[in-house]
Design a protein around this nucleic acid. Sequence first.
DNA 1: GTAGCATATTAGAGTTGCTCTAAGTCAAGA
DNA 2: TCTTGACTTAGAGCAACTCTAATATGCTAC
Lengths: 137, 137
Amino acid sequence: MKYNVKQMAQMTGLSEHTIRFYTDKELLPCQRDEKGRRVFDDESINWFRGIQCLRSCGVSLEGIKVYSNLCMSDEDDAMVKRYEFMAAQRQVAYERLKEAQALVEYMDKKVAHYEDILAGKLEDDTRMADFKSECCK
Amino acid sequence: MKYNVKQMAQMTGLSEHTIRFYTDKELLPCQRDEKGRRVFDDESINWFRGIQCLRSCGVSLEGIKVYSNLCMSDEDDAMVKRYEFMAAQRQVAYERLKEAQALVEYMDKKVAHYEDILAGKLEDDTRMADFKSECCK
DNA sequence: GTAGCATATTAGAGTTGCTCTAAGTCAAGA
DNA sequence: TCTTGACTTAGAGCAACTCTAATATGCTAC
């Protein structure tokens, strides 16, 4: 199956602008039809989703391009480099998870604290300086 | 205890630039000494940490300023508004957590797949189109 | 005293990653 | 033919930093 920019945007959740932006930056292979219009296929969906994952790990577009080039390289050690890249990013993903857990904990406490105040169980001790609960980081 | 910008940066993990940037944007109260230098106290640490949490939830600096003003407001319904704001952000935090879990899952699969290829258990089926595993989102 | 160093200040430029606008091309339908 | 709706490009705008340059102030060493 072949897809245009609009369909691709629907399938990936990215905006059409971002789809064009990423192809302009050559983060993934992109065909053109005889009129110069971008044409995508099922493989492209995997590329875009992979790019979204790497962005979630905080990888810059420049970093993704490096990785993308590794994926299309036929050098002997490309596979090892790709592995090392991904293994490093996995570590980042684990750290993100820990941060996300701490964040949820903080928000839960914060909201519970506010509920206590609104229920009259607690004084409003935070009128002039909020953020008294311990942090998420 | 009173702290200067450098000490504040060490305690919060933010850069000195960001500390100045946030105070310039009036995201939190900030005293000055007789020479015009920023002076922070223990309360400031809570402000900065709270700001970091809201940023992690994806709240814009403009949004944080709104919340910050609510915290310093003496209007009757400020507390209710603060509660509603935080309750909404907690929902975002839960979504972030789910995304972070899916991301870790994706990265684990990806790395395991690469390990299989490097161990010779699998063909390198991804030379020209990577990202074949299902996505994290 | 003054030289050097570390701290602080400001205004403003630069960067990243989008996000949007303007101006134009092309094909189908009323 | 006109409108609609898809596409194209170049380039402007924006958020949130991030950094640079020019300047000021206070401390220590010689």
